[in-house]
Structures are given as C-alpha cells and as structure tokens.
Nucleic acid binder design. Sequence first.
RNA 1: GCCGGGGUGGUGGAAUCGGGAGACACGGCGCCCUCAAAAGGCGCUGGGCGAAAGCCCGUGCGGGUUCGAAUCCCGCCCCCGGCACCA
Length: 809
Amino acid sequence: MARPYDPSEIEPTWADRWEAEELYAAGGDDDPRPRFYALDMFPYPSGDLHMGHAEAFALGDAIPRFKTMQGFNVFHPIGWDSFGLPAENAAIRRGIHPKEWTYANIERQARSFKRYGVSFDWRTRLHTSDPEYYRWTQWLFLRLYERGLAYRKLAPANWCPKDQTVLANEQVVGGACERCGTPVVRKDLTQWFFKITDYAQALLDDMSELPGWSDRVLTMQRNWIGRSDGAEVDFEIAETGQNVTVFTTRPDTLWGVTFFVFAPEHPMVEELGRMGGSWDQVRTMRDSLQATPLTAREQAESREGILLGVHAVNPVNGEKVPCFVAPYVLMEYGTGAVMGVPGHDQRDFEFARANGLPVRVVIEPEGETRDPDAMDRAWDHEGVMVNSGLFDGTPSPAGIGDVIRWLESEGKGRAAVSYRLRDWLISRQRYWGCPIPIIHCPSCGEVPVPDDQLPVELPEDVDVSPTGESPLARDEGFVNVTCPECGGDAKRDTDTMDTFVDSSWYYYRYLSPRDDRQPFDSEAVRRWMPVGQYTGGIEHAILHLLYSRFITKVLNDMGMIPFREPFPKLLNQGQVILGGAAMSKSRGNIVEPMPIVEKYGADTVRLTMLFANKPEDDIDWADVSPHGVHDWLGRVWRVVHEAGERQGEDPVELRRLTHRTISRVTDMYERFRFNVIVAQLMSLSNEIRAVLDDGEPARESVTALVLMLAPLAPFIAEELWREALGQEGSVHRARWPAFDPELARQTTVTLVVQVDGKVRDRIEVPTEVSESEAERLARSSTGALRAIGDRRVVRVVARPPRLVNLVTG
RNA sequence: GCCGGGGUGGUGGAAUCGGGAGACACGGCGCCCUCAAAAGGCGCUGGGCGAAAGCCCGUGCGGGUUCGAAUCCCGCCCCCGGCACCA
C-alpha cells in the first residue's frame, strides 16, 4: 500500500531539486531543438503573489511545459517591473526606502514562484529598477530623442493632487486617478512625450499580423487609436480673409452649415475676439476652463457659446455664418474648429436650439420631407442629399466621396484622416523611476547625456515626500552638472519616466540581461523572437501592448530587429473575482493564494484555476473549490501506484481510450483548453480505476496519464513518474506521449436512429458500417419500428456511422 | 450612440463540421464501509407525465432555412468589455 498523497511533503522537495538542477534552463546556441519563447507579463512587486498571479502563472506555465515535452527548446524567463508609484507610496506610508520595500517584495514573490513550481529560467532574471537595466531604458529614450520621437512641450496635463504627479490619459479612469481614485485636476506643465501618433496607422495596419489576438483586445486597441475618415474643409473669415480649416466626417452635410465654432483655446480666437468685441467674454471662459479638470470638461454637456462677432464663409455656397466660441469643441481633436450642421449632428442641433440658430435640412430619408422647425433631434442617419446644389438627389454615403472629390478639384478641401490617439506622455514628477537622460544647459539648450555616461543613476539618499516637483530636483548633487557640450554649468532633467517605458522592451533584454555593451543581442533576438506565446491580464490590453508594439516598430525602423510585431500570439486570462466583484483591499474580500497552496498544494491550486473555465473567462472564487481537484489528485495518486505494481499489457479497450485521450488532449493543449483537458484526464482516470478493480493491469495508461498531467500539475506528476513508475529523469524532460492512430480510432460508434428528426434508438455499429447496412439496422431497430408504427418511410438521411434519420410521410 | 464578446441544469462549464444537448466536476439525495466520524467507494440528480416501457417539453425571446439548429439567417431583449461633446 502506497503512502497517502501529501503535497506538503513532495512539493517543496521537488521545487528545491528543480532549482538545484536548473531543470528549466533554456538550451544554448548549439541546441538543435526548435526554439520557443514563452513569455508571461512580468509581475509588479506590490506584495506577495495574489490570486491573479496564481491563475496567470498556472496558464503561463502549462504552455512552456507542454512545448518542452513536445521537443522544443523553451525559454521561459522571469523578471520584475519594479519601478513605479505604488512602491513609492507604500514606502512613504511605511517610512522606508522604495528600494527596500520593492526588493523585499521581489524576494518574497520569487520564493512564492518557486513554491508554486513555475518553470522559470532563473538565470536571466531581471529588475527594471536595476541600473544595469535602466541604463538601457535611457539608451532607448535617447534613440527616440534622436529620431524626433521624444520631445518636450507645454501641455495641459492630468494632475493627481494626492499622488502629486502627472498621469497619462490612460491612467485616468472615469475622471479619477487609476491608482488612488482621487479626482484628477488640470495643470499646465512642460512634459516629455513619445510621438506614438506617428505610428497610429502602422499600429492599425499591422493588426493583420496578430492572428493570435482576440477580437476583444484588437477592438480595444482599434477604439483607442480611433481612426476617423473624412475631409478637411477650408473656410474663410469674412472680415479678415484668413483661412480656417475644419475636420468633418460628413462633408455631405456642408450645405447645412448655419454657424461655425472655435474651441476656446484656438489660436485665432484672441485676434478675432478683439476684432468682434467679444474678447473679454472669451477670456473669462478660457480662464474658467483652465481651472476645470480636463476630464470634468469632457463630461460637461453645456451648450453655452459666445458670439465672436465675426463670420465664416462656407466654401460650397459662399454663405456667411456667425462664428462662436464654445467649450464643446475640443482643441485636442481635429483642427480645434468645427462647422455647425444642426440638422444632422445632435451636438450642433442642441447648440443651435440653445442659441437661437436656424436648422437646415440637407439630408432626407428616401421619399420623406423634413420640416426643420418640427425636428426634436438631428437626423444623423443616411439619406438623400437635398438643398445641396448640384449634389441634390445623391445618396448621402456616396455623397461623402463625391463632395470630397469636388472640394479637391475646387481647391477648397481634401480627404483627411483623424485619430483619437494622442502622444504618449512619459514624464513623471516622482522619484522611483528611470531618470530622463537629458541635461538642460543655459547656452546649449536640451543636451542628451552621452551614451558612455549612462546610466544616469538614481540617487538613493533622497527625500521622496511629494511636493509637486520631482524629488530629484531637491538633490543638488544630482541636479547640478557640467554641460557635455560646452562644459558650462547645467542642470539635469529631474523627471523620471512612466514605468510603461520600462516594460515596453523588457522581453528583448531577457535574452541577454547582463550585457553591458548593448541593450539586447540582435543575434539572440533573431534566433528567439518574435515571442512564441505571450500570456497576461486583459488589463494590459491597451497600454502595455500598444506601447510595446510601438517601441518594436521603432526598433525595426532602426534596423535592430527584423520584425514589426513582438507578440503575434497573445492569451489574456480573465480575472479572479469573489462573489461577482473584483477582490480589493477596500472591499476587504481578498483571498490569498499562498495559504491555499500551503493547505492543499500548488498542484491543486493550479488545477482549480485551470479546470474552472476557459482561460479568457473570469473565475469567481465563490463558484469553485479546491476540494474537488484535490480529491481527484488523491485518486490519481492511488491508481498510478496500484498500476505501477502490476505487470502485463493493458486491456485493449483501455488502450483505445488512452490513445484517443492522448489525441484529444494534445489538440486541446494547442488550443489552451485546459478545462477540457482536465475533464478528459478525469474520465481516463475513472476508467483506469474500473480496470484496476477488475484486477487487470494499466501501466501504459497511467504512464500516459502522468505525462499528460505534467504541464498542469508538475509536482505530483514528477513524484509519480520517478517514484511510482520508476522512470529515469524528470517527467518535465520526458517526451510527450505519441498515440497510435489505429488504436485511437473508434472501432464501434453509437449509431443514432432518428425518426422525423427525433432520437428513437441507439445501436452500436462498426465505424466503417456501410450506408445501406446502417439504414437496414436503423429500419429494423425496435425504437424506430415503434415510432414509425404504420406510417411509411418516405425519405432516409443516412450519415453513417453516426446517424440515420428516417423521415415518414 | 459606435465597436467587440456573450446568454446552455441548483452552480462552474462540455458539445472541431448543422447530426446523441448537458461531457467532466461542484452541490444535493440515497446506499456501502465504519462503534462513530473523516477519508474512500457505488448509485441517482434539466423539467413534466407515467408503475414501467416510454412519451412530451427544453440551450434569452419571436420568426425562418433544413430530414435535422445551442450551432446558420432575419428581428428583438438582456448581460459584459472598449470608445465617446472625437466633429
């Protein structure tokens, strides 16, 4: 009788042995196996591992383990995204240094990962907060700077009053700071930006190279980039003859323009307001908007406007319409000025009604007539152009292109594209981040730090309490330098970079993390990349993935890498929630994985996650229980031990089932259907139990069972492989089981007999039963005879060997 | 409003192609083992009718195509994610 299944005994033992043996180290350059780069989104060290990690790394570990068994030379690295605000805030709260807090958490997570048994190649471990890493983040910044892709400008910024820092648009969620939930306000600062907008179209176009991405993530990125097709149209200010351009997606409605609106920040409004006598009012509006948070303004639905006192000339018909200044027009999108078409745009309609402006109908539904005075909202659907000169009668969708071509021929406008995507604001006025390698010299201006002076090291002895300027600005020794160009007194830039810069290139560095001559080894990148499979949370669907795609395109343009997409295949696992809600400290509903690992074992926690549902779906911890899979592992433990002691060949029916299971499970691994794999293995183990109870051997089957289980439950598989089955070497280096197609093939199947489409009988038939034989068997089955009664069969649909449908008259 | 995904038992979920709906589990009920409990094992478990054989209904709702629809088409309803004064 074997000892009972005790994960707390076997798991730590194997974890130590695997580490000592470097079992999961990738093969070297001379390894003949095909290479596979399995990448998990690297963790942020904000404490110990949480439930999300337990799920992510159960999935993210199953893939490289399966690939290794399939004969690939797998590289599965680990590192930490270790700069950033949470570390700094936690450090301030506890009165310790961010570095101390961060690295203590890293060590804690590293220990937990080892206890969880994740198959990392620890040799290439990296931390983005190590100088040997961020030196090359600075190098990357300088390359972008040289290419004009990193620049500084005064910009209205989202400012978190609590964290005392600027936030990217992406970090403002519902008007509040993504990190701490404080409402964001507006502040004008000189900020560093990366010019991701230069790549807006490439980021859209290259989505065709992402076959392994879900529609969900592709849609999120597409929405974020927000391409709109339309036209630029040139209007003229009647009083001055100045040109002013608008962007519109509806050039077919140009004949419906009854007013014209500038954004309050538009550069022309001061001059035009002074001329029209409205400047005092406009300035007041500007000032009040300056004090309003950006997000609050975006959510306002005011239709107030100030009459500027000048007129715009509609280029299609020469009409003069009044110009307004109104906050509903945004300077940041399009050209900062719009044509007002109240008949066909709901916002313009509301503005016209609020300001007593006429509504003109220029698109009508086919065969209908619209009375502008009777309209209670704009008609923004398709229709036929009316009151539009020579375009009358044109269907509006065709009219868009027709009008653009006409505008181009008349020199009054042109086709144009507008994107929602803005440049990436990377400046942070905080301490715990990568210093920006720029020196500001009174005589030379912005001077990049020469490559041979990198890294610009983050000083350690700094007061990190937030005041609104970077803590680095208070460190005289850091700030004061000599200018690398003229040798005069100069000052360092004191901002640090958004941590998304750090994480936009770490997967290149993994291949040569200690290289002190270059950011990454292009040869190694060529050999191993693009990444074979990227795994991580849906919360990174936009930011991290978009930035990584952008940086990859820049590196490609620099000739450093041969591809334009870093992650052709992406798996986004769902969240682990509790009782229908996200786990959070404020709700006090956090379940910690490591105590459950201690109680039931890592294998049980992994299987609980994998068996719950498909990887992309959220797991509600309230719906699942580790008990079930834990008990099953106990049954697996016993059947393998029992079968390991018996001699002889497995009964043929069990062999058939085993080979069929191998065939199915292999396919399911390729498709990440881990929940179905577990179900299949449960069925197989149930059948093995029955065979053993009949006193028959099952060694071949339990061997296959252990191999197929190994990527999902690595500890028990290893123990059973070596101890119960007496195999040489690790199960994790063993070859994936092959199946005999002849055995895997079903020899008999259940023929479903239908009468008029309803199941009336089931018969076991040989797989290769002929159509006529199937029909004969079906017709003579008792169930069919009873159902047919005295009716006549007028038609037979035979799909041997699975189904025969007898259709009666 | 626009874009994307989804809706299957008490619960989590199965069901490559248009061909057995509910695999595998959780939970529940009953039984075996046991002094007892735990652990383990066995059986039943979508709804309705029926003693049973079996019959009827059933994959959000309503239509349609088909010998046959969870799956395809049309029209709705609801849920989730993204974008949104974006012109």
